[in-house]
Amino acid sequence: MSEKEIKNLEAIFEAKIARDEKIEPKDWMPEKYRKTHIRQMSQHAHSEIVGMLPEGNWITRAPSLRRKVALLAKVQDEAGHGLYLYSATETLGISREELYEQLHSGKAKYSSIFNYPTITWADIGAIGWLVDGAAIINQVPLCSTSFGPYARAMVRVCKEESFHQRQGYEIMLTLANGTPEQKEMAQDALNRWWWPSLMMFGPTDDMSTHTEQSMKWKLKRKTNDALRQQFIDQTVPQANILGLSIPDPDLKWNEERGHYDFGPINWDEFWQVVKGHGPCNKERLQTRVDAWEEGEWVRDAAMAYAEKKAERKVKQAG
């Protein structure tokens, strides 16, 4: 294809997105669009998969059967979300095996939030309330993103996500209204998860390299800072209802802006965790790799059995 022809196709493509038409897998798309989507969608899928680990840690020790079935269902949902997203990513011409390879080799990233440990039961409450709350704010705009399979997967994810946040908040509510020790446990979890949750929205707008292009492709509809502010404004009143305090001495309602002002985020910590030096990076990846490798014989056996059955069917028919 000549350079002129590509320019022409690009113009048609950009106009389609501007008209809010969706791009489907077999449509022509610029290579950069394909690559960016593979990167973002697979990171998203990996986050769902690794995201099962910190919470899975508490399934066997959930304090009641009610909490246990809820947590099991939530973790199962996360597996489902990972699978929706992997299969949507595969429509762009990359295999599941390549995607796993990128995760297991450390080449692909996943959300840094999952590199923090879940030390107490209250962490399960804080994750549902804050981490899933932040995820919802990040994900809702993606329901109308330009790539059809991604948008459709996100519609399904968002529908399921609100139970996750409510179950987390209910855990926090129970602890906050419990014994002084339980309330203290809830406060401690909020103290540890608050700042990492704010970092989930990514670097500040002036530091974010992909924002402009992503806005054009509707991969992003609001900037990192706008989403972060939305999360803070929405979460502060929820903390007040719990009777817990947000660990930020600079947090203050700004009447003029109509938003909460908040203190500086520790971006050094953010980049440390992104680069692999968070409290649990090694452990998370190792657990994931072990699960994949230890499951290999099961996958092989299932494949061998399927082939044997298919052969037998052919023989019987012949």
Partner: peptide, 10 residues
């Protein structure tokens, strides 16, 4: 959507 499985039953 889609998924991976060894055979139709799975």
């Amino acid at each position: 959507g889609s998924l991976h499985a060894a055979d139709a039953e799975m």
